[in-house]
Design a protein around this nucleic acid. Sequence first.
DNA 1: TTGAAAGCGATACCAG
DNA 2: CTGGTATCGCTTTCAA
Lengths: 337, 337
Amino acid sequence: MKKPTSPSSKSVAAALGVSVATISRVLTRPDLVNEETRERVLRGIDRLGYRPNLAARDLRRGQTSTVLVVVPVLASFFLDILRGVEQAADERDFAVLMANTRADPNREATYFDQVASQRADGIILLTGQLPPGAASSSRNLPPLVLAAEGMANSNIPTVAVDHAGGAEEAVRHLLNLGHRRIAHLAGPDSVLSAGARLSGYRKALRAARVPFDETLVHRGYFTVESGSIGMHTLLRQHRPPTAVLCANDQMAIGAIRALASVGLRVPEDFSVVGFDDGELAEVYAPPLTTVRIPRFDVGYQSMMMLADLLSQKGPIRSLTLATRLVVRGTSMAPQSR
Amino acid sequence: MKKPTSPSSKSVAAALGVSVATISRVLTRPDLVNEETRERVLRGIDRLGYRPNLAARDLRRGQTSTVLVVVPVLASFFLDILRGVEQAADERDFAVLMANTRADPNREATYFDQVASQRADGIILLTGQLPPGAASSSRNLPPLVLAAEGMANSNIPTVAVDHAGGAEEAVRHLLNLGHRRIAHLAGPDSVLSAGARLSGYRKALRAARVPFDETLVHRGYFTVESGSIGMHTLLRQHRPPTAVLCANDQMAIGAIRALASVGLRVPEDFSVVGFDDGELAEVYAPPLTTVRIPRFDVGYQSMMMLADLLSQKGPIRSLTLATRLVVRGTSMAPQSR
DNA sequence: TTGAAAGCGATACCAG
DNA sequence: CTGGTATCGCTTTCAA
C-alpha cells in the first residue's frame, strides 16, 4: 500500500539506452520518432510502468490541462451540468477541479487565485458572480466562461439559457388553458436568471393583454419552503390566482404542498408550473409541468468553449441555449367553481 | 482578458532586494524569518500580486495536495458525499478532482494512473470496484480510501455504512406495525451494499420468526423504473405482500407509482420504505419513510481519513457509520380488508 | 536570519 | 532521427 512511485524518464531512458528527449518525444510527438525506436520505447514504458510526472510537465509547459468548476452550492441542479462538463473535459483531455463557494465571495476570490497559481488553466463559473476585486480590474481576469447564470453587461464568454423565453412559453401555456389570474413565485432579486424569468412572465401577460398585477408576484429562494410560504401568501389574497409559474421545481413542489395543506388539488383546483425539469419533476406525484433546462448541454458547451478559449482558436462566440416546456400533470384548464 | 501571469518568486525577490529563498520561507515557514523582513515581503507580495506556482511547488515537494474522487455515476446520491469531501478538503487544504467512471472499468484504471502521474496524491473511491489489474497487484495501490461502498475482504481503509443494520431496522418497523408479508426490492447483485441490505432484511425476519420467502425478493437497478417493474411483479403474486422495503428511494418511488397505477393507496393499502433519505424523500407526496444514510459524513470522514493516510499519522482505522430510520408518510399498520 | 545553489522531471531548442 | 542541455519556479540544504 505504498505510493507506487513511477520511474522517471531518466531511469527509463537509461534502461532502454536512449535519451530522455526520445522518451518525451515518443509520448508527445510520436511522429518525430523512428518507428522501431518508438515501438521499443513504448514497450519499455509499459514494462517499467512509467507515467510522466504531470507536475513537471505542467511546470515546463506553463499549463495544467485542468479547469476549475465553481458552483455556488452543491445542489442537484448542478449535477447534470457537472456531468456535461466532465464529459467534454474527458474528450478534450482536461481534468476537472471542483469548487464550492457556499455563496461566500471570499471563497470565490480564492478560487480565482487557483489560476494565477497554475493549479488550473481556466474557470467555468456557475455562480453568476465575480469576486469583489475582480469586477473592477476586469482587464486581467483568468480565462473564464460563465455558464447557466450570466452577468449583466459583461463581455465574458457565456453559455446562457433562455430563461425569459422559457417563462414566457410557460405562461402562454397557462393562458391558452384559459387561466387569467396567473401568479409568479420568483427567485431572489440578486440572481439574474430569476429576473429573466420574471420578465418572460411579464412579457407573456402583456402579449395577451392581461394586466400585470404585482400582488401576484412573490420572491422566494429556490427552496421548497419558500415556495410553500409564497403560495400561502398568494392564497390569502382577496382574489387568489388560479395558476402559478414557479422559479424552479423545488418552489413548485412547495407550492403544491401548500395547496394540498388547504385542501386544494393540483391540477384540478390550481395549476402549477415549475422550472428546471430536475430529477424530481418527472417522478413527482403528480408529475410536474415544468420548463426544461438543457443542463447537460450547458456544462458540455461551457467546457468546450473554455477549451477553445484556452487554445486560442479564433474568437469565442457566446451562446444561448433554448428551454422547452414539458407539459405533465400539474396544469389544466381552470374549472369554473 | 489575457491570462494574468503572476510574477515569479525571482522577480519578486529582485524587486524587494531579497533572495528567492526568503520569499519561499515567508510563505511556508514564516517563523524562520525576521519579523521586519517578513512584513516587508508580505507587503511586496500583496502589491505585486505574487502567487506561488503550484506546479513548481508540487514538483519540488513530490506531492500535489489534491485528491481524486471517483464516482460510478454522477447521481444525486453522491452530491452530499461530495459536499462532505469538499468541506473536509477545504479544511485540510486539498483540492478535489472529480472523476466519473460511468461504470467503465477502463476509465477507472485511467484514474488510478492519475496518482502515479502526480496529478493527485490519493483517491476516494465510491465505486466499490478496483480496476482490473489493480486487484491482483494489490501491493502497490495508490493511497486509497473506500467510501460508502466497501469491498469484500480487502484491508483498504474504508468509511462504511451500516446498510444491513438500516435494513434490519426498517423491516423491524414494518413488523412492529403488524406486517407479516414483507417484500424486498433489492439492488443489483454486483453491488455489495445491496447484498448487505438484503441480509439485514433477512435477519430481521428471522429474528421475528417470519419465514423467508424468496418470491418476495426482486432485484432492481436503483432506478424508479426498476422499482416500478418489481412492484408490479410482486402484485401478481398469489398472496401479495402488504409492505415492501426498497433498496433506495428511487425504487420506492417506482413502487409507489406502480401501486397507484393499480389503484392501491400508500400507506393505507400498502406500506413502502425507501433507503438513502435523499432529496426527494422528504418532499415527496406522500413523504417517504426511509433509512437515512449520513452521506455528508461519509464524504467528510473519507477525506479526513485520506488526509491522515497521506500524512502518515499513525495507523488508519476504518469506520462504519450508523443509519437511522426516518418514519414519514408511507408506512402504517396493515388495514384488514 | 539570510543567500547561494542544487535539483525535482519533464519539454523543446539546437546540433549533429 | 536522436542526443545534449537549458529551463520552468519553487523548496531546501549548506554556509556564511
